[in-house]
């Protein structure tokens, strides 16, 4: 009797509707995360885990300069990708929001998603074709006589990783900024001009602060996954373009050292979380409730 009451109640219905998502989240996100956390405190044995608590993995991660160097490079590259992506996404979002007629906006957003029609892997390979030794850029420049030898700084380094990632994440950055710009009451911009400000100053004093919630979202959406990106540096990064995820992959699957790989993962997650929180804190005045 009591059981039926819970099932029929509003709260019961709510939990019922939530349960597929909850089960999915617990099984595929929380559980693996807890496993990784537990692994990171275990003693590494050769190709197996010795179930004995230790902090040695963390002392290695924090002590060995290779990890710090890779983490730093990952953060710098992710920052570069984020800057390139968000700075190029803003004008596009602005253009669609302010200069495309309302009935055409959906079409433009649809066009922006076209890169998603092919798999990410294929897009990365396409960049190899474009940037490679005998690639599109080198062949074209050679053909018109701009260069004698193919340029080698295009592919297999940090630059190519940044270019490839920036291209992949552009739509993710455009959409939140677009949404924030769409929400701006156009009469606010007229009010800015009416109160004596030029269009540029109105943009800086009204449009930009009101679009900052979208910019902040874009930054996080691009920065957080790119710090831990593994596919792109593997395919186009060369040795100088390797990032923190590459060493995690190395620890897990090449060396079979789960505890060490887990400790690097947890440390990287911690650093990214702290940076994201600091970033949110610095931008808190743009994120408070607005009607």
């Amino acid at each position: 009797m009591k059981q039926r009451k819970i099932l029929g109640s509003e709260a019961g219905n709510g939990y019922l509707m939530l349960s597929p998502t909850a089960i999915y989240s617990i099984a595929l996100m929380a559980a693996p995360l807890i496993a990784v956390l537990v692994f990171s405190f275990m003693t590494p044995g050769y190709l197996k885990i010795i179930w004995k608590f230790t902090l040695s993995n963390y002392t290695t991660v924090l002590g060995d300069p290779i990890y710090a160097a890779l983490m730093e490079r990952s953060l710098v590259m992710a920052a570069a990708v984020t800057a390139a992506t968000v700075l190029s996404a803003f004008p596009i979002a602005y253009f669609i929001s302010f200069h495309v007629s309302p009935e055409r906006k959906s079409l433009w957003l649809f066009l922006i998603t076209i890169p998603f029609w092919t798999s990410y892997l294929i897009r990365v390979f396409l960049w190899k074709v474009i940037l490679g030794y005998n690639g599109v850029i080198n062949s074209a420049f050679e053909a018109i006589g701009l260069i004698k030898q193919p340029m080698t700084f295009l592919l297999y380094n940090a630059n190519s990783v940044v270019i490839t990632l920036a291209h992949s994440y552009a739509p993710f950055a455009i959409l939140p900024i677009f949404v924030a710009l769409e929400k701006i009451d156009r009469s606010l911009l007229e009010a800015g001009q009416d109160l004596g400000e030029s269009q540029i100053m109105t943009f800086l004093r009204v449009t930009l602060p009101l679009a900052m919630s979208g910019v902040v979202a874009s930054v996080l959406i691009v920065f957080i996954p790119t710090v831990g990106d593994y596919v792109t540096p593997t395919l186009v990064g060369g040795s100088s373009g390797q990032m923190i995820a590459n060493i995690i992959q190395l620890q897990y699957f090449k060396l079979g050292n789960y505890p060490m790989g887990s400790a690097v993962s947890i440390t990287a997650m911690g650093i990214v979380t702290v940076l994201a929180l600091i970033f949110l804190f610095l931008n808190r005045r743009f994120l408070r409730g607005q009607k």
Partner: peptide, 18 residues
């Protein structure tokens, strides 16, 4: 508009929410 000696009270008031 920014150089005219006029000021406007908008229908929506256009109060800057930030």
């Amino acid at each position: 508009a920014n150089n005219r000696p006029t000021n406007m009270v908008f229908q929506s008031y256009a109060i800057f929410p930030h």
